[in-house]
Nucleic acid binder design. Structure first.
Length: 673
RNA sequence: GGCGGCGUAGCUCAGUCGGUUAGAGCAUCGGAAUCAUAAUCCGAGUGUCCGGGGUUCGAGUCCCUGCGCCGCUACCA
């Protein structure tokens, strides 16, 4: 069979934190398993990754710590590299986008697109915050709508009349960061002309019928909404500077430049190997299959924008062959969140458990076609019931028996019984399915099928009863052991992409020293000789799981939230606000809205209508009759067609609302001072 | 509300092109066995395949519709 050439990548990870199980489940483990399988079948494959060093969160963190962003990026780059090694994810190269090589090639990419006429320069007027010395993104600006004169219009759109606004046309604009009036400054940005790519993209994408459904759905909904020009530069200090004269402070936008990191990381790899041009053998070779592993949030960038960028380079870069995207991994039934510390850091996991266990569990439970969950109890069950009881015990009972009665030496019998033949044949059939599963990114399935082989071994052992045969027909007992060892030998090959370290250990016990290759599956040895044996896996105690759950809860309670305070105000500012206790007379959902409730309230004798965005925490009926706190002299505003003449006061906690009610009975209309 | 996804056993899920009596693991109950990490093996199941309608000789699967849940998005004055 002809060797294939493959270039596999895992999505670049933001270098603003440590590696967690979401990264592993999303794009590292599945890529690593795929790559290891490709190596088993002797394809030429390299596996490339790295960190995305330019995210805004990184500059913010650097500011907080008073260091340069480069320090942060390099710190987490190293930390991730170490954690990946800790769970045996074997990348051929792990680079970072703030390294010089990457900067250079990103600039080339930009220049090529510009010269080919796919990048448009536009000068526009933007609002600039003098205090913070930066241009303001639309959502950081507020002002009066030039169309309907409503206050509180955002920089991009007026919520009152729904019209789109250019931020510089706002009347009396205010910066939301400093509260000051920004100045108008001219700035220049470069836009990628995506509409110009649309036809070419459609033609190319229409050949990708073999892509996963979730990926195709995503792309076509994007295409059908219509592609728009997108700015590929920003006014920032931390990023890849654009390679033009007099453009200080302009950098490439991360989504443009980050995927180029795959190329710069490959170059870095080639250089380390001492063959600086070797990268071209992959990136510029039409025979190479380029496969990007990533999470679903990254689909549009890798299937629309990135191919567009690649198409118009001077060198004939290959385009992605496949983009197997995973869905998300949740933790204990809740969405993971690094800011809430609701995740499991790989570094912490490795303090308590073997990395192989994480690989096994995440493989068995991978979010391939829909979101899946990491449950600690389920983790324990899978490790104990499957890895230990089924597989570990099969190896252990076979080895101990062989040691005890045969001094560890088991020869192949001259004739195998029908049952033995059938058992081996079944395993061989499963091996074929497993190979296919690996090749189709179906890690869950591969894991399940593998367990089936181990199960069949236990069944075979039980039914052939070697502990009985050893007394009256020693050869029969030896046959059983031979077949079980052969199953273990096959398993040691088949399982090596998922739990490589354990399978290596297994092979060592069996004195199997040949290189692990798929083609050796069918080569049944004439005899087995067991070396020193020990248990393959250890069980996880209830107490260990309890501890993990407690740790998880503790990080929730112990977490200190940094509250960012607003600007100090004068008493006069406060005294302008009129808060009163009002009684809710009627409440009902607003049609077509998800969060809004329409309220009829009485302030003393006066009745008004108000809109409140709290329907995720309150049923309208439950509000009727309540006396609540409201701000009543805010300028009325139409929301979803209803005029709101007061604003309810409520405390927000993680998306849930609690309305404020007085501690004692007071009459409606009472002023709050 | 718009777009997308999901709904199958107590739990986690598989179910190919529409094809017999809807499957696996875990958990539960009963049994066998004693080589083994009390591990293993056999057996027993339980199902309104979310509801309703349609297409079809035949629907978990395709179409329409209703409900529920999740993600993105708009609406939190």
């Amino acid at each position: 069979m002809k060797k294939e050439k493959l270039l596999v990548t895992s999505a670049l990870t933001y270098a603003n934190g440590k590696l967690h199980i979401g990264h592993v489940a999303g794009s590292y483990l599945n890529a690593d398993i795929f790559v290891r399988y490709q190596k088993l079948i002797e394809n030429d494959v390299i596996y490339i990754g790295g960190t995305d060093d330019y995210g805004t969160p990184i500059s913010l963190k650097a500011e907080e710590e008073g260091v340069s962003p480069k320090v942060i990026a390099e710190r987490y780059n190293q930390s991730m590299k170490k954690d990946l090694e800790g769970i045996n994810i074997q990348l051929d190269n792990f680079s970072g986008t703030s390294r010089p090589r990457h900067i250079e090639i990103s600039q080339d990419f930009f220049t090529n697109l510009l010269e080919a006429g796919y990048v448009t320069k536009k000068t526009l007027k933007q609002l600039y915050d003098k205090k913070y010395k930066r241009f303001l993104a639309d959502r950081y600006i507020e002002g009066i709508c030039p169309h309907c004169k409503a206050e509180g219009a955002r920089g991009d759109q007026c919520d009152s009349c729904g019209k789109l606004i250019d931020a510089i046309n706002l009347i009396e604009p205010k910066s939301k960061i400093s509260g000051k009036t920004p100045v108008i400054k001219e700035t220049t940005h470069w836009y990628l002309n995506l509409p110009k790519f649309e036809e070419e993209l459609r033609t190319w994408l229409s050949t990708k019928t073999y892509w996963k459904d979730n990926v195709r759905n995503f792309i076509f909904s994007w295409l059908n909404e219509g592609l728009k020009e997108r700015a590929i530069t920003r006014d920032l200090n931390w990023g890849v500077p654009i390679p033009l004269e007099n453009t200080k402070g302009k950098v490439l936008y991360v989504w443009f430049e980050a995927p180029i990191g795959y190329i710069s990381s490959t170059q870095e790899w080639a250089e380390k190997k001492g063959k600086p041009d070797l990268w071209k053998d992959y990136w510029l070779n039409p025979e190479t299959k380029l496969i990007h592993f990533l999470g679903k949030d990254n689909i549009p960038f890798h299937t629309i924008i990135w191919p567009s960028v690649l198409m118009k380079q001077k060198e004939p870069y290959i385009l992605p062959y496949d983009v197997p995207a995973n869905e998300f991994l949740n933790l204990e039934g809740q969405k993971m969140s690094t800011s809430r510390n609701w995740t499991v850091w790989v570094e912490d996991f490795l303090k308590y458990f073997d990395g192989e266990y994480l690989r096994f569990y995440l493989a068995a439970n991978a979010p391939e076609s829909k979101d899946s969950d990491f449950y600690w109890k389920d983790f324990q069950a899978k490790i104990n019931n499957e890895l230990n009881n089924i597989l570990g015990n099969l190896a252990n009972r076979t080895f101990i028996f062989a040691k005890k009665y045969f001094d560890g030496k088991i020869s192949k019998p001259d004739n195998l019984s029908e049952y033995s033949k059938k058992t081996l044949k079944e395993a061989d059939k499963l091996a074929g399915y497993i190979g296919k599963s690996y090749n189709n990114y179906q890690v869950r399935k591969a894991t399940r099928l593998l367990m089936d082989i181990a199960r069949s071994g236990n069944k075979y052992f039980d039914e052939t009863q070697p502990w009985v045969e050893i007394k009256n027909n020693k050869a029969k007992a030896e046959e059983t052991l031979f077949v079980c060892m052969e199953l273990l030998r096959i398993i040691s090959i088949l399982y090596s992409p998922i739990i490589p370290k354990s399978m290596k250990k297994l092979r060592k016990m069996m004195n199997l020293n040949k290189k692990i290759l798929w083609k050796n599956l069918g080569k049944i040895p004439g005899k087995f000789e067991i070396g020193k044996v020990s248990q393959l896996f250890q069980k996880i105690e209830d107490s260990e799981i309890k501890k993990q759950l407690e740790l998880l809860k503790a990080t929730q309670k112990g977490r200190k939230e940094m509250i960012k305070h607003k600007e100090e105000i004068e008493y006069d500012d406060f005294s302008k606000l009129e808060f009163r206790i009002v009684k809710i007379l009627e409440a009902g959902k607003i049609e077509k809205s998800n969060k809004l409730i329409k309220l009829k309230i009485s302030i003393g004798g006066e009745e008004r209508t108000a809109v409140a965005g709290i329907s995720q925490s309150y049923e309208p009926e439950g509000l009727i009759g309540k006396k609540v706190a409201m701000l009543i002299n805010l300028k009325p505003r139409k929301v979803m067609g209803v005029e709101s003449q007061a604003m309810i006061l409520s405390a927000e906690d993680d998306g849930k609302f609690a309305v404020l009610v007085p501690d004692k009975e007071v009459k409606s209309g009472s002023e709050i001072l």
